[in-house]
Design a protein around this nucleic acid. Structure first.
Length: 418
RNA sequence: GUGGGUGUAGCUCAGUUGGCAGAGCACCGGGUUGUGGCCCCGGUUGUCGUGGGUUCAAGUCCCACCACUCACCCCA
């Protein structure tokens, strides 16, 4: 038997109803705040991701699905959405005449990692970006939208973490201070951190190896090295969150794995997904638009891990299984032909219909109707055809009434659709 | 990419030192010649993850692969 590819998965009926609900809620919320949908391709030139995400990130170094297309060009299945959105923003000059744009997209991303709970090679993200807006209020809006969406989906036990990574003015001095400090404890760092120490020292901060954490006990905090502007923006973000009543924790070690982040970064974390604690994450990327060849405009955004969110939302989700309004039970071929016509007519008029097409006993048809949760069953057999009316049974009260065959579809539709 | 665990019916799982592949739930039929859920009776479920090997004999032992899972790593 041919099975699906490792790390890929099917979302089956029963689970997909919750996915539909999450998508509906997210769209509704984002669009209420002026976000417009943008649909971007799944395949992009590899160069786009190398330049935006960063050559030395794990994503680019070892996780991308990259291959040569038939013309020989290196193409990559998108590992995230921000790069493409920024590319589209620049390419279609969406920054003119007003650079402020709120955009969102929902779709699959691809990273070739070892799969485990909450981590798949194809996973879905809800991605929202506020482009062309420098104010930290935009960051506050994004964190607020995340907590609001989680609340709407009755997700519990999550916390918002925020940090600032500084900007081109203050990050270099912090980086230098950190590098000096790391050099002094280099013999106590793990293998990975020894490598990161020189190339990407900020990433040492969120290493989970206990020895590294100990060695880093006296490490400088980025927050103490922020320049005046970054400090002011970070305070404004915190003020905004506090006045909104959004609970959060300041986490100076929240570094994140993509190179393009500047200033505000944030993450929604949970303890309910094992080792995969991040449900959503994002931050500001004020240099990216310019670095990809666009105008020098700021931007900020987030990505929600749809698969992880669905898993959390499932913990408190009601039964979303679609139930038929009406089940048509027919006995014998002439009755089945009549019932089929009603089935089609009622379905077209907005009734959720179900019907057994085979020759089954009435008992087994009622059993099926009960199993599917049908509210009503319309029964028709030789008797009903002879007397010119069908029996409509209320499955909850067990009460039945006669519906004349003449004008049955209109009558039943009017009854069930009100 | 590295290490540990798991894989038997649609689902949850049992299966002894290698000796006829099982239970509960679900499903189907009957009790009720045309009325669901509860009850009673009966019945069907299977390439034992896949492919090799050892053996008179493999669900059981050995090897490889695949998938799931936990941790590392990383992030959504």
């Amino acid at each position: 038997m041919i099975q699906l590819i490792r790390g890929f998965r099917d979302i089956l009926p029963g689970e997909v109803e919750l996915w539909q609900k999450i998508e509906r809620e997210a769209r509704e919320l984002l669009e209420r705040f002026g976000f417009r949908e943008i649909r971007i391709p799944i395949l992009e030139k590899t160069e786009l991701f190398r330049r935006s995400i960063g050559e030395e990130t794990d994503i680019v170094e070892k996780e991308m699905y990259t291959f040569a297309d038939r013309g020989g060009e290196a193409v990559t299945m998108r590992p995230e959405a921000t790069a493409s959105i920024v590319r589209a923003y620049i390419q279609h000059k969406l920054y003119a005449p007003d650079p402020a744009k709120r955009l969102y997209t929902i779709g699959p991303m691809f990273r070739r990692e070892r799969p485990q709970k909450g981590r798949y090679r194809q996973f879905t993200q809800i991605d929202a970006e506020i482009l062309g807006v420098a104010s930290p209020l935009a960051d506050a809006e994004l964190v607020f939208l995340l907590t609001s969406l989680l609340r709407r989906l009755a997700v519990e036990d999550v916390s918002a973490h925020v940090n600032s990574l500084g900007c081109a003015a203050c990050r270099p001095s912090f980086r230098l201070a950190l590098q000096e400090m790391l050099a002094a404890v280099s013999d106590r760092l793990c293998e990975d951190c020894s490598r990161r120490r020189v190339r990407n020292p900020l990433r040492v901060l969120d290493c989970k190896v206990p020895e590294c954490r100990e060695a880093l006990a006296g490490a400088p905090s980025i927050l103490e090295h922020l320049c005046g502007d970054c400090r002011r923006d970070f305070d404004l973000l915190r003020d905004a969150l506090e006045s909104l009543g959004v609970p959060y924790v300041v986490d100076p070690r929240l570094v994140r794995g993509l190179d393009y982040y500047t200033r505000a970064t944030f993450e929604i974390q949970t303890g309910a997904l094992g080792a995969q604690s991040a449900v959503a994450g994002g931050g500001r990327y004020d240099r990216l638009i310019a670095e990809l060849g666009g105008p020098d405009l700021p931007a900020t955004g987030f990505a929600i891990g749809f698969d992880r969110l669905a898993e959390l939302a499932a913990l408190n989700a009601p039964d979303l299984r679609p139930k038929p309004d009406l089940f048509l039970a027919a006995l014998g071929e002439p009755a089945r032909r009549a019932a089929f016509a009603w089935y089609c007519g009622l379905g077209e008029r907005g009734v959720r219909v179900a019907m057994e097409f085979g020759e089954k006993s009435l008992k087994s048809q009622l059993k099926a109707a009960d199993r599917e949760g049908a509210a009503w069953v319309l029964m028709v057999g030789e008797d009903e055809l002879a007397r010119g009316s069908a029996s409509l049974r209320d499955m909850r009260t067990k009460r039945q009434r006669e519906i004349p065959l003449e004008g049955l579809v209109e009558k039943v539709a009017a009854m069930l659709c009100e």
